[in-house]
Nucleic acid binder design. Structure first.
Length: 659
DNA sequence: AGAGTGGGCCTTTTT
DNA sequence: GGCCCACTCT
């Protein structure tokens, strides 16, 4: 039991935050501007509920990323001096996974189901196309990974495939009947493999609630308080989920900022937040408009810009921070000069006492940072790029995990195929043939363990030798205990067979083996292979980051896309590429919804800055077609009154070509 | 005809 | 940095 009333909510919160925390019963929409203490408000709300006798397991906290959930739960624990055991907190996918592990049988799956990541889904779709003997060279058909994206968008927006194709992929209109066939096949093969893709975790969850009254009742009773973060970025499917679990108790509290909705391209629908009061009866709306982050000058730019949007809740951020310096608009000759300016200014600011740690460079699109990367390298300025290849999506990690997957879920054809193909002489064709034999035997894993010589496997000699090595590895994995000791199993796989594969197939073998050692250590903290696999599938974490505890190496400046900077803040922010044709993205200009989303993206970028903001753009761009092209400043700059920004005119020494 | 290489062109991304 | 396309060499 939580000791009641130890927290001083009045001191910790401002008036608006306090009202949300203490009067947050019923359906509540909290419109929280950037830097307005949104997370703080949420965790205090959770703490308040716990202090007032709500049991932890009656609370469901849904967040946008795994990291956000973890941080919030840690902070709640910090406040209350005890972990909120039993509280379900995580992403939609995470919650869906938990529910489906308990009730998979209702949907015709077993609780050991595998989770397919995007690459796996693409592979399986490709296999489905092969099943259907679709011409692989046909240009009018999307490739498997594009198919995956199309199907996924349809699921997440809960729209018919034909409609999604018509609006987003009109050039594939003719392919709709084929896509429908592939989709049906894909569904069948996922069932066969006892596998869920990411979308199925949401779809399956919704299905459990919609089609099983007992479960609907049980969870409606259990989750009396539902809190959702980043509500502006939810999609239609997620809306349906929230509406389902919000039935009955009537305590759905969502927090978000329609001005920061930037994920429409992947199916998020800002309508969810705009129309929340219409969808959830008797909604109370709270606004958090006091900004604790930025100077008034920076907020003025944000406020002026966002006013040009029409589809939004009216809002105006205010701050109590004293006046600072107006944001600088900095035209440069070209990309190279832009990079040189940023690098030079970073160094100046560091000399004046701002650590690199407190500075970030933001871009609209990833590739826009490449010129700057060269310049930073040249000048020895340490930087990290946020994003990139995810740790758990690297080939060597996925190869090893595939062994664990087939041990846990022997129906997982993808996992069998992947591990079989690691062996010389076995390619796609023989892997499939071997799998078919194993499957025909009833229990594939037992069949595989039994058949040492490959007597039942009808493949050429070379492939048979590969099979025998595979069989030996499999036998060494001590199947009965595998489920409880994932770390040992991984170590076994690596030492018995995969180490050799890494050494012969990858030039950076040492790094990869190091990754695998790290993976082993991480897996050792788990007592269940099943849980390990699920956690890994639902977890972010990038290449180069340590999986256990992330500690940045040295002082460094951050390079990031605007999207990936959401929720973060720095003292000094540079926003690159503020020219017409780069930002807003040209494709977004014709359509007002898309243009408004670009403007929200600009709003997000601007509000990352605490003290100083530099809006830079190249005045020319070189194109091999047309030669030198003059660039005008972005319309987002032109929309701003001259009085609220400083126009800079800088000459940057041309960087030497010393490389 | 098929494979390999170089150059140009890029939205944005979590699970 | 990655992917696709075109061009070239075998």
């Amino acid at each position: 039991m939580v000791t009641p009333y130890t927290l001083d909510y009045h001191t910790a919160l401002n008036e608006a935050q306090y009202r949300v925390v203490t009067q947050g019963d019923g359906h509540v929409l909290v419109l929280a501007g950037p830097g307005s203490g949104k997370t703080r408000t949420l965790i205090y709300r959770v703490a308040y509920l716990l202090e007032h006798g709500v049991p932890p397991n009656a609370i469901l906290l849904v967040t946008f990323t795994v990291k956000a959930a973890r941080e919030m739960l840690e902070r709640v624990e910090g406040l209350l001096q005890q972990p909120p055991d039993g509280l379900w907190g995580g992403t939609f996918h995470h919650i869906g996974n938990l529910l489906l592990r308990q009730h998979a049988d209702r949907l015709g799956f077993t609780p050991q189901f595998t989770i397919l990541d995007e690459e796996d889904a693409g592979d399986l779709l490709a296999a489905c196309c092969a099943d259907l003997k679709l011409p692989t060279t046909e240009r009018r058909l999307p490739q498997a990974n594009v198919m995956g994206a199309i199907l996924s968008l349809a699921v997440n927006t809960q729209r018919p495939l034909a409609q999604v194709v018509a609006t987003h992929y009109p050039y594939f209109a003719d392919a709709v009947p084929v896509l429908e066939r592939v989709a049906a096949r894909y569904t069948a093969r996922k069932r066969q493999a006892n596998a869920f893709d990411y979308d199925d975790l949401l779809r399956g969850w919704l299905q459990l609630l919609e089609q099983h009254a007992d479960l609907r009742g049980r969870y409606a009773e259990r989750f009396r308080y539902v809190l959702v973060d980043e509500y502006q970025d939810t999609n239609r499917l997620q809306f349906s989920l929230i509406r389902q679990i919000g039935r009955g108790h009537g305590n759905v509290l969502v927090v978000g900022d329609d001005a920061q909705a930037i994920y429409a391209f992947r199916g998020a629908d800002v309508t969810n937040i705009l129309e929340f009061p219409q969808h959830f009866p008797d909604t109370t709306v709270f606004k958090l408009e006091m900004n604790y982050r930025s100077t008034p000058e920076i907020l003025a730019v944000a406020n002026h810009s966002i006013q040009h949007n029409t589809r939004q809740f009216p809002k105006a951020l205010t701050t109590m921070r004293p006046a600072g310096t107006p944001p600088a608009v900095v035209p440069l000759m070209d990309q190279r000069q832009q990079a040189a300016f940023v690098a030079q200014r970073l160094l100046e600011l560091r000399d004046e006492g701002t650590p690199l740690e407190q500075m970030a460079v933001l871009v609209r699109a990833r590739y826009q940072a490449s010129e700057l990367e060269l310049e930073l390298t040249r000048r020895n300025i340490p930087y990290v790029i946020r994003g990139g290849v995810r740790f758990f999506e690297q080939t060597h990690i996925k190869d090893v995990l595939a062994y664990l997957k087939l041990l846990v879920n022997p129906s997982d054809e993808l996992a069998w195929g992947r591990t079989l193909r690691l062996h010389d002489g076995i390619g796609a064709v023989y892997a499939r043939r071997i799998w078919q034999r194993l499957q025909a035997a009833g229990h594939p894993l037992e069949a595989a363990l039994r058949d040492a010589g490959g007597a039942s496997v009808d493949v050429p000699l070379r492939a048979k030798a590969g099979w025998q090595r595979f069989h030996k590895t499999l036998g060494a994995l001590e199947i009965p205990e595998a489920a409880q000791h994932p770390g040992q199993v991984i170590a076994e796989i690596v030492s018995r067979s995969y180490r050799a594969h890494v050494e012969t197939h990858f030039q950076d073998a040492r790094d990869r083996l190091e990754d695998l050692a790290q993976l082993t250590a991480f897996a050792n903290t788990y007592q269940s292979t099943e849980t390990l696999l699920a956690d890994l599938s639902l977890r972010e974490g990038f290449k180069g980051e340590t999986i256990t505890a992330w500690s940045p190496p040295d002082e460094h400046v951050v390079l990031s896309t605007i999207h990936q900077a959401k929720g973060l803040e720095w003292k000094v922010v540079f926003l690159l590429g503020m020219s017409d044709g780069q930002f807003p993205h040209p494709k977004a200009v014709e359509e007002s919804d898309a243009l408004e989303e670009e403007r929200r993206l600009f709003y997000v970028a601007v509000t990352r800055a605490k003290d100083e903001l530099y809006l830079t753009y190249p005045m020319t761009r070189y194109s091999s077609q047309t030669g030198e092209v003059l660039l005008r400043p972005s319309r987002f700059l032109q929309e701003l009154p001259d009085t609220i920004v400083d126009q800079w005119s800088v000459q940057v020494a041309d960087p030497a070509f010393d490389d």
